[in-house]
Simulated assay, not measured.
Amino acid sequence: MENTHIESTLHDFYPQRIWTTLIHRIKIIWLLIDISFLVTLVFQNQLSGWILFITWMLFIGLNLVSFFLIFRLNLGMIATNWDNIEYTGLIKRDFRFITSNGVRNYAYIYYPENFDLESDLSPRKTIIGLHGWGSHHREMDRYCLPIIKKENYLYFTFDARGQGQTPGNKSDFGQIEDAREFLELVLKQPYVDKKNVVVVGMSLGAAKTAVVAYPHPNIKAVVMLSGPFDLLLTKKIMTLKERIIFALFGYNFSVPDEDLRKYSGINYFKPEGIILQGDTQPTPNHDRVLLLANRDDPTVKVVNTEKAIEKLQLKHENYRIFKRGHHCFEGNEYFVALEMADFIRKMMQN
């Protein structure tokens, strides 16, 4: 299928970027407010007490308003990209997933509305999506759904432990084992083409992908976005601001180092690649791996991706590092989805 088909779908998927534009403008206004206050401080000896008091109140008030507006607009942008996406032509239904410890994880399957999975069990090409920490399954919709519709693939995803509708502790790294069980469950479905399964992971979902999908002999290819592939390093270089934010959202920094080491994807990567089912020689990493990251990512520093590129010995066409975009590819979602679509389609055709 031609690229223009995917591109036209993406234009429908991302109709405007008003949120990002507003956020940048408010940040500029916020900066001007702070500069004005600093100028006032320089001349404070020439101002009366009341004027200084009013200046302080305005400074505090305008900063709070700016912070609130940026926070709300960020939520609005997230809602626009995640929660409010309704994609015509696709059916979404529950997919039963109960882990070995008896906990129901809320899981879903998406497929084109012209599919009849009840009577037609023909194997179909499949994508599995793994969302990031503190998020939910719809985080991956903006990247995966366009190609699902245009290429007639199946798509499976779920809310990880303690996130979305799934109960539990979201700091429990047992959720990585949940991802392993989910992958195996999907592979058992009669309508899934076991030779054409691609796993896509974002943030901690990328770490899960590295641990459970990259080494798996039945996974055709993997796409990993903003991945903390070295969890010990990620924790070590995390700024105080990021630590506070993560703590406020419920992350437990007392997770043992041995768990962080055990679930660091960098320890699962092999320079020579992985031997896939039915093969006798390893498939080179440049034939099944795509990495995407942002150089200004404050949450998962880009050094994670750089180390992965070096360990996997990837070619330039197998990774893309954007100059800006923070952790969630802010403003770059269109390009991320397009590169993913091109890569996945190429992998499925091989």
Results as ranks from 00 to 15, higher is better:
Val103Ile: 15
Phe67His: 09
Ser100His: 01
Ile128Ala: 01
Arg124Glu: 03
Asp141Leu: 11
Asn101Cys: 09
Leu64Gly: 06
Arg124Gly: 00
Leu64Ile: 13
Arg104Asp: 11
Thr80Ala: 15
Met77Thr: 05
Ser122Ala: 11
Asn81Gln: 14
Arg96Lys: 13
Arg124Met: 02
Trp82Pro: 08
Arg72Asn: 11
Tyr111Leu: 08
Phe68Gln: 10
Thr126Lys: 07
Ile91Tyr: 00
Leu130Asp: 00
Thr80Pro: 02
Arg104Thr: 14
Gly134Ser: 07
Arg142Thr: 07
Phe68Ser: 14
Lys92Thr: 12
Thr99Gln: 03
Arg138Lys: 10
Pro112Leu: 01
Arg96Val: 10
Ser119Arg: 14
Tyr143Met: 09
Ile128Met: 04
Glu113His: 09
Leu62Ala: 06
Leu117Ala: 03
Arg138Asn: 10
Tyr110Glu: 06
Gly76Phe: 00
Asn74Phe: 07
Leu130Trp: 04
Ile85Gly: 12
Leu75Cys: 09
Gly76Met: 00
His136Tyr: 14
Ser66Cys: 15
Lys125Cys: 02
Gly129Pro: 04
Ile127Tyr: 01
Asp83Ile: 08
Ala79His: 11
Tyr108Arg: 13
Glu113Arg: 10
Glu118Gln: 15
Asn63Val: 08
Asp120Lys: 03
Asn84Ser: 13
Asp120Gln: 06
Ile78Tyr: 06
Asp116Pro: 04
Met77Asp: 12
Asp83Gln: 09
Glu139Arg: 01
Glu118Lys: 14
Ala79Gln: 08
Asn74Pro: 04
Pro123Phe: 01
Ser135His: 05
Phe67Asp: 09
Leu62Tyr: 06
Leu145Pro: 02
Phe95Tyr: 11
Ala107Ile: 06
Tyr143His: 08
Leu90Thr: 05
Arg72Ser: 11
Arg124Lys: 07
Ala107Glu: 04
Ile127Arg: 02
Arg124Ala: 03
Glu86Asp: 14
Val65Asp: 01
Ile127Phe: 03
Phe71Tyr: 14
Tyr87Gly: 15
Asn84Gly: 13
Ile91Asn: 04
His131Gly: 03
Ser100Val: 00
Trp133Ala: 04
Asn101Phe: 03
Thr88His: 13
